[in-house]
Amino acid sequence: MPQRVPLDAIHADLEALAPYARSFADELGSLYAYFEGRHGGGTLLVWAPRALAPELLRRLPQDYRGRIVVGLDASEGDAWPFARALDWASPQAVLLACEGEGFYHAGGGWKEVGPPQEPRRVPLEDGGEPLELVRTAPTSVRYRELRAYPAWSSPPLDGSRPGDGVAPQAHLARARGLRVYAAGLLDLDQAWTPLLERLGSAPD
């Protein structure tokens, strides 16, 4: 599980991004970088753990229309920072990047039960109340994280498949009517083309 990110590390990342893209940090310590493509197209939010930033930035597409907003999560993969990212970026589509491989159009559908020290992941429909944890962001903002994540599904794209519980936060984007997908870093190149085509952001 990701560790809490020190605030000074977030400031250092922000300084590193500033020469290359319009960037800022929000009230929860999430970082945002805005990359502008050619005229036309839509806005794609690419949401990823902060630790994956170097590899993710290397793998961004070089030619596209519209805007790619890279959001770097300073939390432990919580839902509230992702919800705030949707507010800040106002995207037309979302890609959640994670470690490993795979390209997914469905996931989530689980909760955590039991004591916080030894949580168990079970299907959402199983009995038992989900854990509700109090989190503290690197900025010292506190929020509650209900460890229950409904299943989500978007229209399939070329090469995508359902995932086993992947990208649990993605249900928040679907609830707003957004098309959302998830991809491992090793398969990002496979995901860009069909996703940008669906968004109307593919180059000529």
Rank of each mutant, 00 (worst) to 15 (best):
P162G: 05
L31F: 10
P162F: 02
E129R: 12
H39F: 11
W152S: 06
E125W: 11
R38S: 12
R120H: 11
E129I: 00
R50Q: 13
C98F: 07
I68M: 11
R38F: 09
G109C: 07
G71R: 02
V69P: 06
G41R: 11
D78N: 14
R142K: 15
P155Q: 03
L95A: 03
P168Q: 01
E101P: 00
E76D: 12
G41H: 11
E132D: 00
L44A: 09
L131F: 06
R142F: 04
Y104Q: 01
G71C: 05
A173L: 00
P156C: 03
R65K: 15
E145R: 08
G42N: 11
L45P: 05
F103M: 03
P116L: 07
L56S: 11
L146N: 01
G159L: 02
A89K: 04
V46Y: 07
W152P: 05
I68E: 09
P54Y: 10
V166L: 02
P156D: 03
V46T: 08
Y149C: 02
P138R: 07
G40C: 11
E118C: 01
E99L: 05
P115F: 06
V134M: 12
S140P: 00
W80S: 06
F82L: 08
V134I: 13
S140M: 10
W47C: 09
W110T: 04
V122N: 03
G114F: 08
G71A: 15
G165Y: 01
D158C: 01
L52Q: 13
P156K: 05
V134H: 06
S160W: 01
E129M: 04
A93Q: 08
A151G: 15
H39G: 09
P119A: 08
G165K: 00
R50F: 05
R38C: 08
S153G: 03
G37E: 09
E132Q: 13
P115A: 15
E112A: 15
